[in-house]
Amino acid sequence: MNKVTFNTDLCKGCGLCVEACPKKIITLAADVLNKKGYHPACITDAEKCIACAMCATMCPDVVITVEKNV
């Protein structure tokens, strides 16, 4: 399975990754606050990830690491 890791403490909850994801499987965790006080981005259905890295491409804070299962 492809793996997406979020360095949540760097996340500012801007939501650019949410908009960029073609599979619409990223959301801002409504019930979580990170160290900075933002709702960090997280993945809802990791099975559907195609490792396109569009989320990471749009992330201004380099929160996301994407690994493709080959």
């Binding site: 801007c14 650019l16 992330c59 201004p60 804070d61």
Partner: peptide
């Protein structure tokens, strides 16, 4: 390190 930019600021990109 975390940047001081506002959320969604494209400077980071």
């Amino acid at each position: 390190v975390p940047t001081h930019y506002c959320p969604g600021c494209t400077h980071g990109i």
